[in-house]
């Protein structure tokens, strides 16, 4: 797994003002983790490389979105902790 400079954790839906703020803030060495309502972003085209974009599996399942992302991009709660630990810093949007 690649490690990131900053891990951006986004739990806001695409309509939320912080959603586009977050996407604009993602640097070339950063990663994005979608949680809660943030996982609705998997239905949209995002300008981020797939290797740098992850979503929390239970939140995808709840919303019927599991098929929208390949399994290597989905993480469990443990995986989320791992991602956060491997990043230099974390921003929770």
């Amino acid at each position: 797994m690649i490690s990131f400079k900053t891990l951006h954790i986004l739990n806001k839906p695409p309509e939320h003002s912080r959603f586009s703020l977050c996407l604009a803030a993602i640097g070339p060495e950063d990663g994005l983790l979608l949680t809660e309502n943030g996982v609705l972003a998997v239905t949209q085209r995002l300008a981020i490389h797939r290797e740098r974009c992850f979503a929390l599996a239970p939140d995808l399942e709840a919303r019927g979105l599991s098929a929208h992302l390949s399994s290597d991009q989905t993480v469990s709660f443990d995986g989320m902790v791992g991602l956060a630990a491997s990043a230099q810093n974390v921003i929770s949007w």
Partner: peptide
């Protein structure tokens, strides 16, 4: 409307987030 349309999406399974399925 808006993000609300996601209420209607088929295939929801909310067991792991400890909620009842809205679907």
């Amino acid at each position: 409307c808006g993000a609300g349309v996601n209420w209607l999406r088929k295939g929801q399974d909310a067991a792991k987030v400890q909620q009842k399925s809205i679907e």
